[in-house]
Simulated assay, not measured.
Amino acid sequence: MAKSSLKNTVIILLLIITIACSTKLCKAIESPQYRVVHSESDFEIRHYRESVWMAAPAYEISFHKATRDGFHRLFQFIQGANLNFSRIYMTKPVLTSIVPGAGPLHSSAYFVKFYLPDKFQADPPLPLPELNLQPDRWTSRCIAVRKFTGFARDSNIVKEAEKLALSLSRSPWANSTAATSEYAYSIAQYNSPFRIIGRVNEVWVDVAGTGASDCETNPIAAY
C-alpha cells in the first residue's frame, strides 16, 4: 500500500475513533488492567496485570516520527495484515517506549506498542514479516505514572519525564526505578490527533516490584 494511501486510511480510522468517543461507544475500547496502589498530587503508582502487546521498533531520532511510523505498521496489523487475517479492535493507549542511546549518534530508539484486546491475549495473531512487529509479553509490574495534557511532542515529553523523576526523587520510590528495565520511560497517548481539548497523556516509568504488594513502598499511604 502506498504511503499516501495508508496515511489517508489511518486518518479516516482516527476520525472514526474520535466520532465514536463522542458517544458511549468509546467506553468499549479496551485498556490494560491495573490497580492504583498509591496516589500523590502529581503522580501515582499502579500495579499492571500480565498482558500482551504488539510492538513496532522504530529507529528514528524524533519521538513524533517514530510514533507515526510505528503506528502505521501496527494499523496494518490490526486491519488484517497478519497470518490469521484477523481484524482487531482499536485499544488505548498507544504506548511509545524510549530506549536511550540505541540509535545513530547515540540518539534514542523507540518501540511503539499496541495493547491486544482480551480476545487475542492468549493467542496473538502473527503479523506479516514485512511489518517488522513482535509480541511484547508483560509480566505483572509496578509503574509510576504522571499525567499531562495537550499533545505529546518532542518538545515536551522530556520535560514531563523529568518532572516525574523529580517527584519520585522526593518520595519513598526515590531508589525504586527498575534497574532491569530496558526503557528509560514510555509515553502513553489516549486520544486521537483530532481531539484538541481535554487530551490525556501519561509518562510511565517502571519501578521495582512485580506483585501489587511490592508496589506499596509506603503501605500506610497506599489504598
Rank of each mutant, 00 (worst) to 15 (best):
L6D: 01
K7R: 15
I12V: 11
L13A: 14
L14F: 13
I17K: 01
I19G: 02
A20T: 02
A20Y: 00
T23R: 12
C26L: 12
K27E: 05
E30W: 04
Q33T: 12
Q33C: 02
S41F: 09
Y48I: 05
E50A: 15
S51R: 09
W53R: 00
M54P: 04
A55V: 04
A56Q: 06
A56P: 05
P57L: 10
P57V: 11
Y59W: 05
E60R: 04
I61G: 01
H64R: 13
T67S: 14
H72G: 03
L74E: 02
Q76H: 04
F77K: 01
Q79I: 01
G80Y: 11
A81R: 13
N82R: 09
N82L: 07
N84E: 10
N84W: 15
N84I: 00
F85P: 00
S86R: 14
R87C: 01
I88L: 03
T91L: 03
K92F: 01
P93M: 02
I98W: 10
G101E: 13
H106G: 02
S108T: 02
F111S: 07
D123G: 01
D123R: 10
P124V: 00
P129M: 09
L133T: 11
P135M: 05
R137M: 09
W138L: 07
R141K: 13
C142V: 09
K147P: 03
T149E: 15
F151S: 03
A152R: 11
A152N: 07
A152D: 02
R153D: 04
R153T: 15
V158H: 14
K159V: 10
A161F: 12
K163D: 09
L168D: 02
S169T: 06
S169E: 02
N175Y: 07
A178I: 00
E182S: 13
Y183M: 07
I187T: 12
A188C: 04
Y190M: 02
N191I: 10
S192R: 06
P193Y: 08
F194N: 07
F194Q: 10
G198K: 10
V200Y: 11
N201S: 09
V205G: 01
D206I: 00
G209F: 11
A212V: 15
E216G: 04
T217H: 08
A221T: 12
A222H: 07
